[in-house]
Amino acid sequence: MSIGHTLLGLLEAGPRHGYDLKRAFDEKFGHDRPLAYGQVYSTMSRLLKNGLVEVDGIESGGGPDRKRYAITDAGITDVETWLSQPEKPEPYLHSTLYTKVVLALLTGRGAAELLDVQRAEHLRLMRILTQRKRKGDLADQLVCDHALFHLEADLRWLELTAARLGQLAQEVRR
């Protein structure tokens, strides 16, 4: 995720202090990891240098740095460009799991057990996410669902692989 673009987008609603920016970010997107203040600071100075934001004013006295940032026209254009560009879908072509299965087959270890263990592990995580989804708000639900769908996709792959394990073993050992 591009933190720079996200902070820029948050600034578009109006000028803010760096600390407010961090809080807004954490509230909306930082479910798992809150943003470190240092990261906000470094990102903002990069944006400043690129002319995407400007300092709207400095409050004196309160703390070490109470800069208020505002977005520039170039910054707005930059946000717009980022939003309008589709994300590149991840190809997921290099899978650790696949590697493990093939290796298990090659070395004569139990590939089915491997898949089952993985399956149980996936489902355990799905249960946790489902639990969290039930207690959380809509934002939580959406984020968890995103993860759940990915896990489900993995699980389907696990099932499919389990069903074709014999075929795969033949090909691998050839």
Partner: peptide, 24 residues
């Protein structure tokens, strides 16, 4: 699986035999 994720425990039936995934 997303429906199964509402469960506490999972049992998989394959070819008429059941496996308790928790014990794995």
């Amino acid at each position: 699986t997303r429906v199964a994720a509402y469960s506490d425990r999972e049992i998989v039936v394959r070819d008429g035999k059941s496996r308790d995934m928790e014990r794995i």
